[in-house]
């Protein structure tokens, strides 16, 4: 992709469609690791009920964007607003309590603990775990019910992905942040997990998905952003992005 980076990002169409209220909003975010400037003036919105994908090459700052949204790293300037509240200086625990949940890169299960315990930890912010939440997760992932006593570290990659998603769902999030949910999965499983994401989305969970697999992501997303070395260089509806020439050449291989 050779598009000249423009601070605000070249808009193919303007922001989220009218009636949507923003759920997550990053405005003017600049994030540093030590002296290294990682995110430069990132502006990004996820509307209520939207499925937004964030595309970009390796090391361009996608994970950092999610971490900034979740409060794992603090931006030097800029604000993070969630559900109408400025959470920029609020700790991660509070953001999760307000409805964010994450399926982290590489899943990050608590390997020595059982599947059930992993799920229960997902419900940490809800205090006493609600059996209904667990039932819902088991309904989505029937396999997990059978495996609930198994040590999470011994699960296969695909099963681990299910636990990671189930764990995030246990806090009944209004927004799920997913970092490369397809990583390390066979094409068949990728398809499955994207179906699941769509299901969840239809149930009303908003999503911000980071993906290398741009085809797949754009096929289910409402809108997308393209990040390049820390700047948003493109944004628009999924439709527009899939038809964008340069993007096609760079990521979609068509």
């Amino acid at each position: 992709m050779r598009a000249q980076p423009e601070p605000a990002g070249a808009a193919l169409s303007d922001g989220p469609p009218g009636p949507l209220t923003p759920l997550l909003q990053l405005s003017g975010i600049n994030t540093f690791y030590g002296p290294v400037h990682i995110l430069e003036d990132v502006n990004l919105v996820v509307g209520k009920g939207e499925l937004v994908c964030l595309l970009g090459g390796n090391a361009c700052g996608k994970s950092t964007t999610l971490k900034t949204a979740l409060g794992l790293v603090a931006p030097r300037t800029g604000t993070v607003t969630f559900d109408g509240v400025d959470v920029t200086s609020r700790p991660t625990s509070e953001r999760v309590r307000r409805g964010m949940a994450v399926v982290p890169e590489n899943r990050r299960l608590f390997a020595p603990m059982t599947v059930l315990e992993n799920l229960q930890i997902g419900a940490w912010v809800r205090g006493a775990p609600d059996p209904a939440d667990l039932d819902r997760v088991f309904e989505l992932f029937p396999l997990l019910e059978q495996r609930s006593a198994q040590i999470a570290g011994t699960l296969s990659g695909g099963e681990q992905q299910m636990v990671a998603m189930g764990r995030a769902l246990m806090s009944r999030p209004s927004l799920m942040l997913m970092d490369e949910p397809s990583m390390g999965l066979s094409p068949r499983l990728v398809e499955q997990s994207f179906e699941l994401i769509e299901t969840l989305h239809r149930d009303g969970v908003s999503m911000l998905i980071v993906e290398q697999n741009a085809n797949m992501a754009l096929s289910i997303a409402d809108r997308g952003y393209v990040l390049q070395t820390g700047r948003i260089v493109l944004r628009g509806s999924a439709q527009e992005l899939s038809n964008h020439d340069e993007l096609r050449r760079a990521y979609l291989g068509r």
Binding site: L70, L72, T92, S93, R95, V96, R97, A101, V102, P104, R108, L109, F110, I121, G122, W124, V125, R167, S171
Partner: peptide, 8 residues
């Protein structure tokens, strides 16, 4: 870090 992500 993962624990933090879970809101702990």
């Amino acid at each position: 870090d993962a624990a933090v992500m879970m809101g702990i």
